[in-house]
Design a protein around this nucleic acid. Sequence first.
RNA 1: GCGGGAGUAGCCGAGCUAGGCCAAAGGCGCUAGACUCAAGAUCUAGUCCUAUAGGGGUCCGAGGGUUCGAAUCCCUCCUCCCGCACCA
Length: 900
Amino acid sequence: MASFLDTLKKAEEKWRKRWKESGIFKPDEDSEKPKYYLLEMYPYPSGNLHMGHTRNYSIGDSVARFKRMKGYDVLYPMGWDSFGLPTENAAIDKQISPEDWTKRCIDKWKEQMESLGLSYDWDREVASHWKDYYKWDQWFFLKFLEKDLAYKKEAEVNYCSECKTVLANEQVEGGRCWRCESLVEKKDLNQWFFKITDYADELLEDLKELEDWPEKVKKMQEDWIGRSEGAEIIFETLEGEEIPVYTTRADTLFGCTFMVLAPEHDISEELAKKDEKIRDFVERAKRLKTSEREKKGKEGIFTGKKAVNPVNDEEIPIYIADFVLETYGTGAIMAVPAHDQRDFEFAEEHDLPIIPVVKPEDQENFEDLDKAYEGEGMLINSEDYDGMNSQEAREKITDDLKDDGKATREVNYRLRDWLISRQRYWGAPIPVVYCDDCGMVPVPEEELPVELPTDIDIDVAGNPLEKEKSFLETECPNCGGKAERETDTMDTFVDSSWYYMRYCSPDFEDAPFNQEDLAKWMPVDQYIGGIEHAILHLMYARFFVKVLNDMGMCEMKEPFKRLLTQGMVLLDGEKMSKSKGNVVDPGNMIEEYGADTVRYFILSTADPRRELEWSDEGIESKFEYLRKVWEVIEKYNETTTSDDIEIENCNLRDRYVVSRTQRIAGEIAVDIENFKISDGLKKMENYFDELLKYKEESENTSQKSIIFNRGLETFVRMLYPFSPHVSEEMWHELGKDVLINEKGWPESKISLIDEKAERGEEFYRNMREDIIHIKNITEKEPSTIQMIVAEEWKYEAFKEIQDFLEDMEKPNMGTIMGELGSDFPEKKKELSEIAQRAVRNPGKILDRYVDHGFEISVLDQIKKRLENEFEAEVKVAKAEEVEDKKARRAEPGKPGIVLT
RNA sequence: GCGGGAGUAGCCGAGCUAGGCCAAAGGCGCUAGACUCAAGAUCUAGUCCUAUAGGGGUCCGAGGGUUCGAAUCCCUCCUCCCGCACCA
């Protein structure tokens, strides 16, 4: 007998082939369907896929398939972020060329993606390292150069000696390299930058437009851009030099008792030339790695110079200290020890005066600080400004200085320009040459790409390109003389800044993309990727789009409309990674349980946004679950007519199942849209169980098998996005000869939704639960169950109470009783009990469905069901006809129950 | 330090943007029963306290408040996680 695993395996092979033949994964470009661009961050292909990828792609693929079923023209491509350092290292390690290694990895990845049944349109595949691709990296570079958005400058940069290359600020995490985690050093190097700071404001402003991005990511970008408003104030030294400083706290200017320069500041450098002590200090500070610089105390050295505080003409000493950053503001600060903790510490260490000038509003004694007061307040010791509040003073002081030409309002950013040079081989060469006569000359567009030589020895110290004559030596495009190529390659984040646009027209030869195609597909409707790119990739990509927009190359201002940052898959609380050796290989699981099970399992196990602690406990039961579904379909499948369900021939339960079937698809659709996939799957399981119970337990009616089959069909179609192969096989088993994709997502017929039937089912469940409850308390096995419908007058009374409750702002006992008492003069005592409860907890009464006739008919219909379930005789009676205290207690929606 | 998120029954985890059938879905674990020679799987019921009639009590990090009514709204505090961090 064929095992279910065989069924799964065969289905995988069979349907993958059919899908491919049918071309359903390709966008239907000429159709009128609305477009939907779904994208997962293209991966760096190395080693094997791990659970994190499996999860990511299972989510994406489900949405892609779902959207196709919903009638969208879906673009769902995949490609490779294939340039980069690890490849270079792996290639050296394995004695193979990076190109071959990359190819090998990609092939393997593709194979694994195939084995999961992912529905990518492979015709649109792109890879960073392909010539046809990086040609456009270079092309963009030239455009940026033209627009002055690319420039080369000598700067202090982050250098990772482990990776032997410089890093962008964004790639330094807590003073360590984002890739290898080794400490980053500071180095002065001549490097290429992209002027992302020109777009700081736009990047910040437009975050507001990104409504469907996680708040967290937006916040992170906001912080990273770090806009602050303040003033630049010019201090003059006694010698007449002007030193501008940046401050956000002009209100504390009277408390400024000294100035501090960064060690890299021009004046510091100048002084270092003349003074040995200063030279020592500056040199030492610059050598220190960032993180170490932060840890030690506030060291500094007096320059011998003094400056004049522009507000009060006080002479203040100028220091050099390494807690001041060259790269922020002007590289110099006005130090206000009373109101800045760093300045405070420095002042204490160097015995400098501390003058409080801002007093917290609610504090009387405000002298003798033991730490800086960094809040706002009322000004003191500030001459004419005394008594103003901080904000007022800030404006006024700045304005007054402005009038004297000693201050300007300034906006500052934390964001720095994007350092894109890498001293590595495996990347896109930066397309410029250096000519002895002409200097730096860009490579003309028509000569692109500047090809990366592939058959060279890369196992050398430093950048192999520097040693490769065939690459290095070239002609100057300008004068034709001898010239040398730039040997730096581009940061791989340049590649990933625009790949999503290349997918729109991957073979386009005249430009990075065809603008028409771009207009059709962009922006990406749903982007899925890891939170680790919250700043890096997502900021760079946004920057690119803004530049392209300014260049008139695209209409959009933002590339990604909606963003899902999926949680990481952890093992024992740690991120899975090769270096930690804790990677779970999905390949084995696919082997053992089939791709559909693995997909189903990983989706059912947690919300995609959450981290997921990996455990394969439970995969077995998902396998069994799919098997159950399969077996049910095999067992009960029978050909039914395609006629519509004859509702008039349905009993209550039939109608309930019909109604439920109509609703479920809509509910699941909403869950998928909101990425509440695990919730959706749970609901589906529930639905299936109900359906099966209906089939096996309910009494036969003429419509039953049609209803059941419709239910199965609905279920199978809903299962398809998650476990596509087996669903397709089930669908086939149900006698269908079109693909599920063609059939589409089940539509809900509103006319078949039957609230009364749903009420009836609910009623049954309540009755059933109550009976069980009573059974449990009494520990009785009843032979008779009597259900007593409440007296008819109570229904009227309840309705009235409901009306009262709805109309009244505050439920009021008196009013209710007043009105009701006269309507039912005989029943005052009972009424007051009911009314009391109504007032105490209106919710319980308000939601009651009150209908005497309906209740009786429902009870008649569910009688049989209860009899079967409890193996007891069930009697239905009206309270008016029964002598039992239960009869009097019975309420609308809550019949009395007597077990005997 | 700044910012963000979260604290729900033995555990995991919904609900908390629209307060009311919420003692609080679902799963796991555990208990009992059915099935079985038996185990597993499966099915049924139970799993805060209490109660031989569907009830009552206490409860959703802690403490206040708003409300007829709060897991859900407001305030204060505590704890945990994440991001940024000598940015003037």
